[in-house]
Design a protein around this nucleic acid. Structure first.
Lengths: 213, 213
DNA sequence: GAAAGTCTTTGCGCCTGCGCAAAGACTGAA
DNA sequence: TTCAGTCTTTGCGCAGGCGCAAAGACTTTC
């Protein structure tokens, strides 16, 4: 696919800015637009009846979200918030359908995205069933690090605000347990953590721990 | 889509019988065929490094499986076993690709399947994070009942062999916990359970319990 | 129909991880 | 600079649920 191809498709959408913490769309709303993240980061969450929130995934720059819901013509299954100030392109349903007719390759790409997400979620489902809490937190941290890590002199810094609470919602535990794990790892020299800020200083040790408990 | 259309597509595949408990394909094997279940039931599982097995989903009559893996050209992400003697149609990759070119509607259907599975898994992921064990077991039982329930005079019978162990693997717990829950529910008159056999005698009570803990 | 094999039940003890509470640390706005 | 607001830490107690073990029930096979 050529550059002009991308440019053409991007031009057919609307450029949107979302401030840190603001909501782009809500679980249950009719799915009318899909989005592509240029910059920043979206957090997709699902709310449980009893009030608990779960982070389903993060959408990083270069990734698409909600395309599938729009295609299916149902409501959004998750809520999207900006985990960091984000620059986004949004397409209305009609435009999207037109584009897909014009470029069938788009549909194939969408299928690929869906498959990857399904794989990822199956793997995390397995982890959630089979692993101890601390192991899951380690894996989650490594996963986020790989997607959003910035090399610094102290190690690999996660380049967006990530609170203990959020990490807990991503791993299916509580903020207390995450806090305790991070404190323990800090003592071992594996991570350096501050308020909503985590640097992995010894990724190798963390990988070993994630794999062997 | 007309009847002949279905017949034509089915004729292009091979009819396969899988005996109860036998394996159709294994996690990690290259994905060369996809399958449609006519009769019986497939159990899709994933194996964790530390030896634990998790049931990812059941494939019921009328459902497709592995189509997406074949399409993607990777290896199977799960293992498929027959939870009950099954009659299946299988297509090789090449045939499948040809069919999809001939009938573009097939690709759209596949995307729809992928989306539904993703939705389902997101919901179960949420449940696994947010709910107590017994509540999850109740929900799982109800889900299975809706898909494979047979009305009898005692209530709704799950029409295939389902052990405590399997129910545990489906809900992310242990066979002991499942056994205790079923015993307790039996005392309350909500279910009647025997060896690998469960009848839900009071679905309404179970729904209430699943929703409110 | 007896024996082997598998699945289920249940008592008991233990441990992981939850949840409250209260104090401390950091941030951002006025 | 101060103060409110939010995020984090950590002690403490508790309980949900795990896991073993051993006995009991049901199937299948020969």
């Amino acid at each position: 696919m050529a550059k002009e191809f991308h440019a053409y498709i991007f031009d057919r959408g609307d450029r949107i800015h979302v401030k840190m913490g603001k909501t782009l769309f809500c679980e249950g709303d009719p799915a009318q637009r899909c989005y592509f993240v240029l910059k920043g980061r979206l957090k997709l969450t699902k709310l449980h009846e009893q009030g608990k929130t779960v982070v389903v995934r993060y959408i990083n720059p270069g990734e698409l979200t909600a395309a599938i819901s729009v295609f299916k013509g149902k409501s959004y299954p998750v809520t999207a918030q900006a985990a960091a100030a984000a620059e986004i392109i949004g397409w209305n349903k009609k435009v999207m359908v037109d584009l897909m007719e014009e470029f069938p390759q788009l549909a194939v790409n969408m299928l690929r995205v869906a498959v990857d997400r399904l794989d990822d979620l199956q793997t995390r489902y397995l982890e959630l069933c089979a692993e101890q809490v601390e192991q899951r937190i380690a894996r989650a941290l490594l996963r986020i690090m790989r997607q959003s890590g910035l090399k610094t002199e102290d190690g690999i810094l996660i380049d967006f605000r990530l609170s203990r609470q959020e990490l807990a919602e991503y791993t299916g535990t509580t903020l207390y347990t995450v806090s305790r794990a991070l404190s323990a790892w800090e003592k071992k020299g594996w991570v350096i953590s501050g308020r909503e800020r985590i640097t992995v200083s010894d990724p190798h040790a963390l990988v070993l721990f994630a794999e062997n408990g």
